[in-house]
Simulated scan of single mutants.
Amino acid sequence: MADHLAAGSLRKCPSDDFLSMLDSQTDWLACSKQIRQGLPAYFLHDLAALIGMRPHVLAGILGIKTSARRRWAKYGVLNLTESDYIYRTAVLMNSALNMFEGDQSALLDWLARPALALGQKTPSELLSTFVGLSMVEALIWRVEHGVVS
């Protein structure tokens, strides 16, 4: 996973709009409205910037096809299902990053390390489905609350 930190299309930091959307998670009605309207196409790039990964690498981990990314670029917006999935992924990644006190490198190492609580799968292997996201969210909660698994 080290190649994702090289220069290129890697943004230094997410946009203020992206951070505002993550902050609005405490207002579930506003969140739901944003998701139903469709998240902006740049959301994946901002998520990648948040965790210090190239967008195409993150898209591969999340199982997002190139054709979907092209459609996002063309129309400027994600559909409802994509918006819901990407938003939930962003919330998860933000929680994981907070678990490592903002250390992107530690987060990326953790994403690539097999976890006993995940059946010796890496967290990144499970991020392409809602079920996998739930499993990783549960693991983050257990780590943050000191629950042995």
Rank of each mutant, 00 (worst) to 15 (best):
A96S: 15
V136G: 08
S149V: 12
E125K: 07
R11I: 00
Q34R: 14
S149N: 10
S149H: 08
H45P: 00
S24H: 02
A138V: 01
P114C: 07
K12D: 10
V57Y: 01
A30N: 08
M135Y: 04
L126E: 04
R70S: 12
N94H: 13
S20P: 00
A6N: 07
A48W: 01
G102S: 10
V148E: 10
L118T: 09
E125G: 03
I140G: 03
A41D: 07
L62E: 05
Q25L: 05
T129S: 15
L126Q: 12
Q120V: 05
V136S: 07
S105H: 13
V77M: 11
V57Q: 06
M93A: 14
H145C: 07
D16S: 12
K121V: 01
R88I: 00
G132E: 09
Q25Y: 04
E82T: 02
L47R: 01
I61E: 04
L80D: 14
I35C: 06
A30I: 06
D16W: 00
A7T: 08
W72R: 08
P114F: 11
L97V: 06
L108A: 03
K33R: 14
S105T: 14
Q120A: 13
K74P: 01
M1A: 14
E82W: 11
R71D: 10
G63Q: 09
R54V: 01
S95G: 03
H56W: 09
L29C: 01
P14F: 03
L127T: 09
T129G: 08
H145E: 14
L92E: 06
D109T: 12
L118Q: 09
S9M: 05
L80G: 04
A7M: 08
Y85T: 05
I140N: 11
F43P: 01
A68R: 13
L111V: 02
I35T: 13
G76M: 06
Y87D: 03
W141S: 13
W110S: 04
A48C: 05
F18K: 06
S105V: 13
R54K: 15
L92N: 06
S124L: 12
